[in-house]
Amino acid sequence: MRERAIRFGSHGTLAGIVCEPAGRGATRAVVMVNSGILHRVGACRLHVKLARRLAERGVPSLRFDHSGIGDSEARRDSLPFEKSAVLEIREALDWLATKRGIERFTVLGLCSGADMAFEAAREEPRIDGLVLLDPWAYRTPRYWWTHYRARVTSAAAWRRLWERHAGRRVAPPAPTGPAAEEDLDLPTYVREFPPRERVAADLAAMAARGLRLLCLFSGGQGDHYNHAGQMRESFRDVDLGERLEEVFLPDADHIFTDLGHQQTVLRTVEGWLVAASDPAADAGAPQALPATAGSSA
């Protein structure tokens, strides 16, 4: 395994770490993108640990910082983050294609990173795999059932309801601290889920060209996702078949702070990626190593 710090992009201002197996000859690589403003090491160092495990299994990767994040310089143009992030993911693919002769890619991201990975895959045919951690989610009838079932049996929920009606509820404190202290040259991104119909159309197009997805949901996005298989159910009108592997870790938080959950995520993603990188996998769908939580394929 070998790691190298690189500079790339049209102005050489993007910083990344390429992590590679000892031998050359890989035909597929994984590109890992920022989650929010967390730098390229990933939440709780997830990207570093995953990159090294992948390299041991023969899969190269590039983890990098978008402009203005981590160790990459801010852009000089006024391109919105949604556009510049996609452009920069393509520049990462270009670097791997030019320097390593790799032509097929999986892009991995958490939260806003998942959003940008998805947006890049819409435009970039070289991306034929996505690993999305807490991506956009769309509520289903079962979501609402799960949501309200938990509440009708909760004493706290009844108390809140009573307080609201009695006018006794104390307003939550106004946000203070970190948000007001953000650096001015940070890219701005407000996470808004696109209309489900748009995402359904994109998924249909991606599936038609053979793209495969591993979507892993934590319990930290409970406002949008709360039961195993919700993604498949919410896109019932798209023939995803075995192209979608969906995993739910209900006890995990959004950035996987529990060490046990980190191991589950690493094992699941590594298994899926290694299978996807096997030339024989082109004949069939990759399978994640068994996760300890609910999984729906």
Partner: peptide
């Protein structure tokens, strides 16, 4: 300065005590 170093939030916020 507001905020604490030893804190986790879901968005991985940075703390910059200017």
């Amino acid at each position: 300065a507001g905020g604490s170093w030893a804190e986790v939030d879901n968005f991985g916020s940075a703390l910059i005590p200017h």
